[in-house]
């Protein structure tokens, strides 16, 4: 069943739509959640929360790209759960390593301001432009690592690359992002 049909079922309030969602997306969403939480039970709960949120938000909301909406939803739910669980120290999955890696891209810091949301949208725009300027493989590697939280080993398997190749590619991409953000005057 394609995504448009599932969305149509959701708009018709057909309960089978959740079953179809499970069939098509449960494994993928579980994997994304596991990348961040590294806990089977938590990941399952996050996936269920995501399905519930989909049921509650569609309708009236109609996502432009349904699968991307699901990926973003489960990522946010998983990260919120992780933050709630580990307010003091980070623990699950690869997230602490991912954040350490991203430190290289951050050169300036600011206090929280009322303009934070606006600045965040500028940052997202700059990242989108940066991603659009990359080659397809580079862009996919970056997104898999820093959006989906995939491990280096997962990325190696996906592209049939060696571990050192993926690590050096990610290192170069972070450097390029740092330079790009500086050039665009994006302050974080």
């Amino acid at each position: 069943m394609n995504d448009d049909e599932i969305v149509k079922m959701l708009f018709d309030r057909t309960e089978d739509s959740i079953e179809e969602l499970r069939k098509k997306y449960e494994q993928k969403l579980f994997k994304i959640s596991m990348n961040f939480l590294n806990n089977k039970q938590d990941a399952e709960e996050c996936v269920n929360d995501a399905f519930l949120k989909v049921w509650n938000t569609i309708p009236p909301y109609r996502p432009t790209v349904f699968c991307a909406y699901l990926y973003k939803l489960v990522r946010n739910i998983s990260l919120n759960r992780l933050k709630a669980k580990n307010a003091q120290k980070r623990g699950g999955g690869d997230i602490s390593i991912i954040l350490e890696e991203l430190e290289n891209c951050v050169t300036t810091t600011k206090n929280n301001t009322p303009e934070e949301l606006y600045e965040s949208s500028l940052t997202t725009k700059a990242i989108n432009d940066f991603l659009a300027s990359l080659k397809k493989t580079e862009r996919m590697t970056f997104v898999l690592r820093y959006f989906y939280g995939d491990s280096i080993q997962d990325i190696c398997q996906r592209f049939d690359f060696s571990e050192s190749k993926v690590k050096s590619l990610l290192f170069r991409l972070r450097k390029r992002l740092q330079v790009y953000l500086e050039k665009e005057g994006v302050a974080l």
Partner: peptide, 10 residues
């Protein structure tokens, strides 16, 4: 919050 197309592509 990156664009949907990059997520689908990956």
């Amino acid at each position: 919050n990156i664009e949907d197309e990059f997520l689908v592509e990956a």
